[in-house]
Design a protein around this nucleic acid. Structure first.
Lengths: 256, 256
DNA sequence: CCCAATTTGTTCGTATGTATA
DNA sequence: TTATACATACGAACAAATTGG
């Protein structure tokens, strides 16, 4: 285990902020700054409390919030870990399509295209960049039970994903977000989605094997890292003939 | 202030359950059973801790969870209250449509029809009842900025809403959920939604003033009270030409 | 405007239980 | 079995917000 890190004095913007939030911010910055890599074990609560000069209860309250946000994971008897992007986490936190009967299954993914592009106005706005900025854009076809259900078009800022290639994308061992994390040091912590109905255009109808003009759901998503900084823009076209878009089970968090 | 209530001994199903969860269940049952009406003030934390025979910290942990689930509301300096269904709460917790530019506005509601019906298979399944059971069914047209955007068809079990009439529905002073709560003692605590795209049928197209066949979003919602008991089924047809369906900002809870 | 009482919010510290290696 | 880690439970003191005098 690494030596207990040495933390900076209270930041100026912490004025009037409860101590446990100051500790939370410090933990966040340490995680973001790579003091503890994804998947690694943090020092014990006792050690952290000493390192920060706060009581164990205060330290726990900070960790409670980070745990509720899926940034840290606690396991009784084992320790506290920096969350990683496992296939399970993707399925339950970031994948919102289920079969109409409620079956939830991990999709199989097929890369259809890979390009370097310049951001259009809408993408630039969503990513907090300027139109014309360089980006990678690629399309995935997602299948459930062997049937194509979703067409994703993803847009990633070139500045954040230097060295991304079609080959690396294709040969990734696990989920996309796992790739972002392990290869580019980018941790997706949250996503915002907005949906509407639309008629399938020719491209979507070909990829999904449905008639052009058929109603499909169109979901715009922005994935965010620490500090709500956008790192990915995604437009999904969903064939909802046999499947449905399911909003977060906000219950899960509370009911445990 | 009413005298401190007198709570039953620990329930048998509480075996192995942490004390704060036992307290939480007892609080829930007291709320559900009407010991404290919606909007009323609970005894202070100190009093409750004494009444339950637990420490203040344990009591607070129970209240923390109920507060996170929007069942209780705490206000520093004032007290802890049983949550009520205000228009604001409806807008932020239960209404998921925004204008494309992000403007979130309370809809104006117009009652279009009111009938007694028998549940069909799908409705019965969703409401955990039997097909053919008696129900009320009514339609609302919701407008934003004066434009019709949503057509809701609601189905309520007749057994839970005895005495509901078109007149009472029409003359309610506030939101529908406020009516459920004050007139029928039914508190909606949570809702599950599933969405798909569909072509507007003739009825929807007439009500929303759009062309038949146009792609619209179709949202199935089941509203639940304590113990995840379903109390309302709702099918919404949304014209997403100018508006979007926005999934919960799961961030809001955590970021406060 | 200030003061006092009340209530929740924060912080501290300790002891004990439970899960894991 | 032992050691370690998180989980639960206890209790005390003070801070901050609110209300009423």
């Amino acid at each position: 285990m690494p030596a207990s890190p040495h933390f900076a004095a209270i930041a100026p913007e912490a004025a009037g902020m409860p101590l446990y939030r100051v500790v939370k911010r410090a933990l966040l910055q340490a995680i973001e700054g790579g003091t503890w890599a994804p998947g690694s074990t943090l020092p014990s609560e006792t050690e952290l409390a000493v390192a920060f000069g706060v009581s164990i209860g205060t330290l726990r309250k900070a960790v409670d919030e980070l745990s509720a946000e899926h940034i840290l994971v606690r396991r009784q008897g084992r320790g506290t870990f920096v969350a990683t992007h496992s296939p399970d986490r993707f399925l339950f936190q970031f994948f919102h399509v289920e079969r109409a009967d409620g079956l939830r299954e991990a999709p199989s993914v097929e890369l259809l295209s890979f390009d370097r592009v310049k951001l259009d106005d809408a993408q630039a706005e969503a990513l907090n960049l300027r139109a014309g900025d360089a980006a990678f854009q690629f399309e995935n076809r997602l299948a459930l039970q062997g049937r194509a259900v979703i067409l994703d078009r993803l847009t990633l800022p070139a500045g954040l994903f230097k060295g991304l290639t079609e080959k690396r994308l294709r040969e990734r061992p696990s989920t996309l977000y796992q790739l972002y994390q392990s290869e580019f040091g980018i941790t997706v912590v949250h996503a915002r989605e907005r949906a509407r109905a639309a008629a399938a255009d020719r491209h979507a109808s070909r990829v999904l094997g449905i008639a052009a003009g058929l109603p499909v759901m169109q979901v715009h998503r922005v994935a965010l890292t620490f500090g709500d900084k956008p790192v990915e823009h995604r437009e999904s076209i969903i064939n909802t003939a046999q499947h449905e878009y399911v909003s977060l089970l906000s219950r899960k968090d509370a009911a445990r």
